[in-house]
Computed example of a mutant assay.
Amino acid sequence: MADAAEPRADPGRRPHLGMQVGELDGKWYAKYWNPVMAPLPQHVREALALGPQAPPLCLEFDAAGTLGDAGHHDLENGYGLFDDGSMHTATLTRMPGVSPAMLDWWFWWHATETQRYKLWNPRAHVYAAWSGAPADRDAPYRERYIGGTSFVDEYVGSALGELAIRFVRPSRFGFSEDGLDPAEATAVCGVVGLSRVPLDWGYLIHHVRRVKDGSEMRSRFWMGGKYVAPREGASLPGKLEAAAEGLRKLGAEQARAMVVHCSQEMNHLAAFLPGIFDEFTRRARRDEP
Results as ranks from 00 to 15, higher is better:
T186G: 12
V168M: 15
E184S: 04
A159T: 15
L160S: 10
R166E: 13
G161P: 00
A187H: 02
I165A: 15
A183E: 11
S176A: 11
G179K: 14
P170A: 02
D181C: 02
G179T: 06
D181P: 08
R172G: 09
F167H: 11
L163I: 03
G157A: 06
R166A: 14
R169A: 15
V156E: 12
S176K: 10
R172V: 11
A159R: 14
R172A: 14
A164N: 04
E162Y: 09
F167R: 04
I165Y: 13
G174C: 10
F167M: 13
G179H: 15
V156D: 06
P170I: 03
R169K: 15
F175Q: 01
E184T: 04
A187C: 02
S176F: 06
G179P: 05
R172Y: 12
I165C: 13
A183S: 10
F175T: 01
A187Y: 02
G179V: 01
E184M: 10
G174D: 05
R169I: 09
A185V: 03
A164H: 01
A187I: 00
R166Y: 13
A159I: 00
A159H: 12
V156Y: 04
P182R: 03
G161N: 10
Y155E: 10
F175G: 00
G174V: 04
P182W: 00
P170Q: 03
R166P: 01
A159S: 11
S171N: 04
L160Q: 14
P182Y: 02
E162D: 12
V156L: 05
D181A: 02
S176N: 15
S171L: 07
T186N: 07
A183D: 08
E177R: 10
P170F: 11
V156Q: 12
F173K: 05
E162K: 15
A185R: 13
V168D: 11
A185D: 05
R172E: 14
A185Y: 12
S171Y: 05
S158I: 01
T186H: 06
G174M: 09
G174K: 09
E162V: 00
R172P: 07
P170T: 01
V168I: 15
G161A: 03
P170M: 10
S176V: 02
I165H: 05
G174E: 06
L163D: 12
P182L: 01
Y155K: 13
D178K: 04
A183C: 00
P182V: 01
P182A: 00
L163K: 10
P182I: 00
D178R: 14
L163F: 13
F175E: 09
A159G: 03
T186C: 15
P170Y: 08
A183M: 02
F167V: 00
V156R: 14
A183Q: 04
L160D: 13
A159L: 08
L160A: 06
S176M: 10
E177I: 06
Y155S: 09
F175M: 02
I165Q: 10
L160K: 15
E177D: 07
A183K: 11
G157E: 03
L180Q: 09
S171M: 08
F173E: 11
L180F: 07
P182M: 07
G174L: 10
A159E: 13
D178V: 03
F173N: 11
L160V: 02
S171H: 07
F167A: 09
R169E: 14
G174A: 06
L160C: 14
G157D: 02
G174F: 06
P170L: 02
A187M: 06
P170V: 10
A187S: 07
E162C: 12
G179I: 00
I165V: 13
